[in-house]
Structures are given as structure tokens and as C-alpha cells.
């Protein structure tokens, strides 16, 4: 078998002073796979996603990216491979213009300015953000903000894309546009959502979280639904 793009091995995690949020989580994702992470609010989806690029580190167990275990020493390298689109676009966009925000990641990677510019152009084109590249993110619509926040991650050319509830604050039209864009991306994708239509449209496999543990991992068509909590 190939080296998995992303692999969790028996990961446990609790927030300081809190109860256990991830309980013995194990799964692996092959390159090119599109996986939906589903589950009720508070089941631990966001927490799991924050482990994929070392923003949170497991208490016990390991998370590896392209076969390399994420530790304190190689987090920066992992963050180039795993691009994360946060749930709230307002948290993701913080530069004065869309363009400089999309350039933020590549500049941190220390790339040459021509390379930065060409990546910015490409990311803006893929996400349809070119027409408002000079605008302040603050003035954009919800849908535009979401597309821009995806562009800020695409410009870093990650292999794996992680989305936390990508459609949670979008209207119908923006959601349709977003689905169109994500559908064309060649990346390995892991996205949390409780929108089952979205999951079925974009993913072939589903992982169901329930109180911090994996309750189901398999084809999305046979996912038990509705996602009733067992407790």
C-alpha cells in the first residue's frame, strides 16, 4: 500500500482542564481521497482537524503527514503540506487587501517575489477572486470571504486541504459556487460538515465522530443517517 497522505494512530487529546475530546482516534487517508468528517456539534471535529497540521499536538498517539510523524520540530514543514481553511473566514483574513492576504503564506515560505505573484494570480483565478483582489476583506460578502480564504491556502500549494464546515455561513448561491470550486480541486481533501448533501456531492468516504470517537468509517452511501448520538 502507498504511504497514506494523512494518518491518525490511536490519538487521544484533552484541552487543558477539560474532558477528553478525542478518544483513541485512528484512520488513514490515501493521496487523492475526498473524505467527509461528520458528526454532531461538539463531537470533536474541529479539534481533530487542528491536529492535522500540528496546531494541536496529540496527548498520546501520533499523527503523520506523508509518512512523517508531526512533532514540534517539523510543524512548519507540515503546514506547507496541509492547508487549512478555517470555519470563520473573518479569522482567516487579516491583511489589508485580498491580494496581500493571499500572498501572506507564500511570503512566509520565503519564496521569490515572482513566484509569490504567480501563485497569488493562480489562486485568485481558481477561486474566482481576481475581480476583487484589491478590496479589503472586511468589505466582502460572506461568499466572497470564503472564496478568498480558500485562495489564501491554495497559494501555498498544499497537497492536502482541510476544511472546517466550509458552508456553515453561506447562502444557497455561494454554497453552489463553493461546491463547484472544491469539486475541481485535485487535492486530498478532509472536510468536516454536518451538511449531508454537501458531503455526498464532494466525498466518497465518510468518518462519523461521536463523542470524540470514530463511530463509522466507510463509503458515504452506507453512512448511518440521521447521525443520532448513541449516548
Amino acid at each position: 500500500m502507498n504511504t497514506p497522505a494523512l494518518e491518525f494512530k490511536d490519538v487521544c487529546f484533552s484541552y487543558p482542564g477539560g474532558h477528553e475530546v478525542l478518544r483513541h482516534v485512528s484512520f488513514s487517508i490515501q493521496p487523492g481521497e475526498k473524505v467527509a468528517l461528520v458528526g454532531l456539534n461538539g463531537s470533536g471535529k474541529s479539534t481533530l482537524l487542528l491536529h492535522t497540521n500540528g496546531l494541536l499536538l496529540a496527548d498520546t498517539g501520533t499523527v503523520s503527514v506523508n509518512g512523517k510523524v508531526i512533532g514540534r520540530k517539523n510543524v512548519e514543514e507540515c503546514r506547507k503540506i496541509v492547508g487549512m481553511v478555517f470555519q470563520n473566514a473573518d479569522d482567516q483574513l487579516f491583511m489589508p487587501t485580498v491580494e496581500t492576504d493571499v500572498a501572506f503564506g507564500p511570503r512566509n515560505m520565503g519564496l521569490k517575489e515572482e513566484e509569490v505573484n504567480s501563485r497569488v494570480d493562480e489562486a485568485l483565478r481558481i477561486t474566482g477572486c481576481s475581480s476583487f483582489r484589491d478590496k479589503a476583506p472586511f468589505h466582502l460578502s460572506g461568499g466572497q470571504k470564503k472564496m478568498a480564504s480558500i485562495a489564501t491556502v491554495l497559494s501555498m500549494k498544499p497537497n492536502i486541504l482541510v476544511f472546517d464546515e466550509p458552508t456553515s455561513s453561506l447562502d444557497f448561491a455561494a454554497e453552489a459556487q463553493l461546491i463547484g470550486i472544491i469539486d475541481r480541486l485535485p487535492h486530498t481533501i478532509l472536510m468536516s460538515t454536518h451538511d449531508m448533501d454537501l458531503a455526498r456531492r464532494l466525498c466518497t468516504r465518510a468518518i462519523l465522530m461521536d463523542h470524540g470517537a470514530i463511530a463509522y468509517d466507510g463509503p458515504i452511501d452506507t453512512l448511518p443517517y440521521p447521525l443520532i448520538s448513541t449516548l
Binding site: 487542528l50 497540521n53 496546531l55 512548519e76 503546514r79 506547507k80 492547508g83 487549512m84 478555517f86 470563520n88 479569522d91 482567516q92 487579516f94 496581500t100 500572498a103 501572506f104 503564506g105 511570503r107 512566509n108 515560505m109 520565503g110 517575489e113 489564501t152 491556502v153 501555498m156
Partner: peptide, 23 residues
């Protein structure tokens, strides 16, 4: 809370504490 999340989003994009200036 908000600043914590913004800071995470910045770190996720390779921010290591110093401004990378645009030329």
C-alpha cells in the same frame, strides 16, 4: 478567543513571528 483563532490561522500559514515584507 477571537485573537487566539486569528493567531492559529496565521500560524497555519507559516507565520513565525516576524513580518515578511512585500517589496
Amino acid at each position: 478567543e477571537r485573537s487566539r483563532r486569528i493567531n492559529m490561522a496565521m500560524k497555519a500559514r507559516g507565520f513565525n513571528g516576524t513580518l515578511s515584507t512585500s517589496p
